[in-house]
Amino acid sequence: MGKMDMAPRLRAGLLQAVIKFREAGILVFIVALAAVVTLRTPAFLTLDNFRDILLNISILVIVALAQSMVIITRGVDLSVGSIIGLTAMMVSFVVVAFPALPGPVAMVLGMLLGMVLGSFNGVLISFGGVPPIIATLGTLSIYRGLVFWYSRGTWVNASQLPPGFRQLAKGSVLLLPNIILGAIIVVAAVYYFLRYTRTGRDIYTVGSNPDAARFAGIRVQRVIFLVYMLSGLLCGLAGVLWASRFEAAQTNTAAGFELQTVAASVVGGVNIFGGSGSVLGVVLGAFLLGTIQNALTLVGISPFWQLAAQGLLILLAVIVDSAILRRLQRFASGAQRV
């Protein structure tokens, strides 16, 4: 094939560079931000503060990974916040009634409940053919409504929750807080799943070209069902951790969280049109969101600006992305003239 071979190799290098650039870019951004903040507030660059950031983003990381898997298949799960709210409430009810229930059992219960809720999304989308944005917009309302119906408007507060349950998030193993440990385990598991299992690879395959995936004999419906089920499962886990960490289950627990998870995914370089995205990127994306929030507080900027900053960051991320991609495409089309 003589003349065909040179350019792609060069271009492939460039594309990989861009993907790495994405992750490196976030890192550079974080470091720069840290430097500026540290100059003004030395308290920023301490181990304690670093731990604070990690504590704050642990749940976000777990759910953002779930969201990313869904986005990679060209979908979106707008119901994550409602699933977290519902599982947090239901599990809290159970642990209040049965204080002796071991923490891990509560976690498994939460995951099971979340899995059922996620499976419902999955059935609607993969077998029912309802577009993801509609199905999960619907279940966002339904699940949140169920929280109200279930709780009859009441909430579970810290004094009701048994100490064992509260320790679930607060406790630590070898100085590492449980909740951070949990996030690390989820990150590792999702990484292994996406990288080293065929089903994990199928998620990228389906998102990259669904028609071709069907032709290649991949059970597309099943893969799509699976990502929503997994999303529900991870949200269930997040719900338990949420109730434990904030020592409460309220009717509005995690309301609006879906947008933060999409934000972390997009900032982390997951392609909103599906097909690509990396675990490392999503973790960094969530970390960046957490760092900004933390830094704004430390520097003494009104917390009211935090939301605006988060929005700007999302805009910045897509603008930079498209600028790089466009330049790359121009280069690629130039190089294609062999």
Binding site: A308, G311, I314, S322
Partner: peptide
Amino acid sequence: RLRLPALVVTLGTFSFYRGLAYA
């Protein structure tokens, strides 16, 4: 003009505009 995905752009401005309101 920049041909960015509407979902992401308006998600960003969703936070941005509400943030400005709070500010």
